[in-house]
Amino acid sequence: MRILVCVKRVPAPGARINVTADGQDVDSAHLGFTTSPHEECAVEEAVRLTEVHGGEVTVLTLGPVEAEEQLRYAASVGAHHLVLVPITEVDWDPQRTAAALAGAVADVEAVGGPFDLILFGNESADAGGFQVGVRVAHALGRPMVNGIKGIDVADGVASARREIDGGFEVYNVPLPAVLGVKEGINLPRYPTMKGRLASKKAEVVMDERSAGAGGQERVRLHRPVETVSETAILGTGPEAAPAIVDLLEELGVLS
């Protein structure tokens, strides 16, 4: 199987998310960067599928050149090919991102052949537009289902499970197909030392692309207003138990 996964580099904020003075970006001056959990699981799922069915995994990102870090991480856990669409702006709007990614997929397919499966995250961790995967799938003319938490491939069909209240919905999507996955579909592996070393040498293919701006424009980012509550300290050890149980009684959860 040939599988492609689209991942996005995002900052990894701690206790709160700060915004730059111009309101255009998350202030990442003191932050590390990561791949969104959904997409990390998408990479893991792709690697597992090729371990079972054979084949290769390509990981594609659109972002600053530093996003090479996230691509190399994917290589350290088993991805074979890495492609970066470099941009210099803070973030591209969803239409523009999707147009560029669809173009990049076409480029890669022209050289290496078509992908059986293309995986996305359910939504990006930062922008959360819930659409880039759907747009790319439509541009490529392939079926797409989002929110997937289980994939089995057999006889040219991806049987995909989507969580609903108390169970799963099942979709049988013929390949080539596009799926958006959610964290929880698997437990991603950690890189091995060997994987880490190999990823340092992996080639990152640069694919410069242009695309016109879409109709959604950022004015500014800001933090929601928080209601700060005073914290009542009930104790500093197990002797706090009676006070805690008093509280539980008060709240009526001790029926």
Partner: peptide, 10 residues
């Protein structure tokens, strides 16, 4: 954005 941790005027 960020599942509700951040807001965006657009």
């Amino acid at each position: 954005q960020w599942g509700g941790s951040l807001l965006e005027d657009a």
